[in-house]
Structure formats: C-alpha cells, structure tokens
Simulated scan of single mutants.
Amino acid sequence: MRKDLIKQLIEDRIDEDGILETGVKGVQVFRVTEPLRCSPAVYQPSIIAIVSGAKEVILDGRHYVYDSSQYMCCSLSMPVEAGTPTASPDNPLLGVMIALNTRVMTELAIEMENASGAIRQPKSGPLPPGFALAHWDDAFTESLLRLLQLGESPADTAVLGEGRLRELHYATLKGEAGGSARRAFGVGNEIARCIEYLSTRLNQAVSIQEMAAQVGMSRAVFHRKFKQATSLSPIQFIKSMRLNTAAMKIATGMNVTEAAMEVGYVSSSQFSREFKRMYGLSPRQWCQSNPAYAIR
C-alpha cells in the first residue's frame, strides 16, 4: 500500500526522537517514543499526517484523537492543548508535518472557486471549523508519497519540491478538510485574516470592536462567525492564544514575568492567576512538570 511506503520513507529518515527537516521548505518528519500529556500549544496553519501511533488534541474542552486513519488539517492559527499520551518505544509516533503556505493555498482556493462547475458554499451558511480531521484519500496519499520521495535526491528536491508541495495543497483542498481550508484561504476568509491580525498583536490590547472593524462586520455578526470557525468566542480565543504562547515561551527557558509581558500582560500576578485558572498549575509548577517541550 502507498501509506506503507510513506511510513517506510519516514522510518528510513529519522531513527531518533525529534523533528527533522526534509529539504522541502515547511515539510518535517517527526518521531516520539515517550508519552507526553496534553499541554498548551498554538497550532499554526498546517497538516499533520500520522503513520504510526496517535496524537491527542484538546480544543475548547473537546478531545480529538487521530492516527493513521485520518490526517489533521488546521486552517487557522488555533490555541490548543496537544500531546502524545500513547507513544512508546514499541509504538512510536511517526508522522509528517506540513506548514500550509498561505500564498499557495489562497491562489488555489480562489482558482477552485472561479473554476467552471466549482461548488460554492452559500456565503450565509455556517463556517466550517478551523480544525478538521480528514480520511486519507488516494489523491492526498499519492501526493504525500511523491513529496517525501524527493528526499532521496537533493537535486530533485530543489527542482521539484515547490511543485510537489503545491500538489499536496491542492489534494488537501479537494479532500474532506477542503471545506474548512477553502473558507480559510479563499474569498470568504475574513476570520482567517482577523486571526492573522490578532496573532501579530498578542502584546497589545485588541478589542472585539477593532477585530470586527478589520473585516467589516458588526460586533454581533463577527462574534457568531468567529465562534463558528474556531469553536471559541473572540475573548476566549484571545486569552487562550496569549496563555498558550506564554506557556511555550516559559517551557523554552523564558522567565514568567518576561513571558507575561511578551503576550500583553502588565501584571505577572494577574497572568499567574489566569494561567492557573486555565491549566490548574502555576506557570512555574507547569514548567517543572513539562521539562521537555517536544512534538505537540
């Protein structure tokens, strides 16, 4: 089977825990053999395809577990809790992570929407969630295999990498996660643009009214569409993005006060209170219980 070939390519390339670049920009393979409980993380627009083991993600209190039967497509930057609770030396987590290229996804999504016979979603209809799980179809599997096979030749990688990556983006847009991805990157991408605006201003006070004005919506319409896309209210989303981003900074060695200021908290005591309220531990306690911040 083609998926078995993908697994073999990953096993041949990485034999120690960690993340390894493939040579194609934005494409990495990874291996984990130690269980990691779910911890704060921020997923950037990306695809994660598992060929062995399973990953767990918590979004707004809902648990999602995915393995080799489904790949994950995150179309929007999302604050989550993620981990690898079942990883072990006998059952390693193996997979590939592909950063979604905004320019390529937008070009393809708009081309698909403009293509003759393309199915258009009603603009007044519900927004798909920014986090989706999709079954591997033939087009996705074949394009991923062709992409990973480039690693066998640096020359092929340099010449064909961009084209093979574009092929995978197209397969994703056509697959089960396509509705979510097309809405995030196509013509109706107001919420995605708003999240991108917010993500570059985590250290600033951004009001809901300001976010709504960025995409030309009333506060009420913006609130409804934002929650449809992310499952979180704008206020919940902002707080989760700030706290998760700070947690990741603390885990890599930044002190608590500096991390709090980096994401817009003036008071480190307020930051610690809100952190403990969300995660059940103080920032320092959480850091001590998460000595390694590996694959999330």
Results as ranks from 00 to 15, higher is better:
I48R: 13
Y66L: 00
P122Y: 02
T86N: 13
T22S: 13
V96P: 01
L36I: 14
M105S: 04
V65T: 15
I48T: 12
I98H: 05
V42K: 00
I98A: 06
L59Q: 08
C74R: 03
N101S: 14
T106Y: 03
D60P: 02
A49Q: 02
L100R: 05
C38V: 14
A118V: 00
D60H: 10
S46V: 11
A115F: 02
I14F: 02
D90E: 15
E107Y: 11
D60F: 03
D12K: 14
G125N: 08
L59M: 03
D67T: 03
E16G: 00
L108R: 09
Y66A: 00
L94V: 02
G61Q: 07
Y71G: 12
R103S: 15
C73K: 07
F30C: 04
R62V: 03
L94D: 01
E107R: 13
T33E: 09
R103N: 09
S68Q: 11
C74D: 05
V42D: 10
P35W: 09
S39R: 15
P45K: 11
I119S: 11
S116L: 12
Q121R: 14
V104F: 02
K55G: 01
E21V: 02
V57S: 04
I10D: 03
T22C: 05
Q44V: 10
G53I: 00
E81T: 13
A99L: 10
N114G: 05
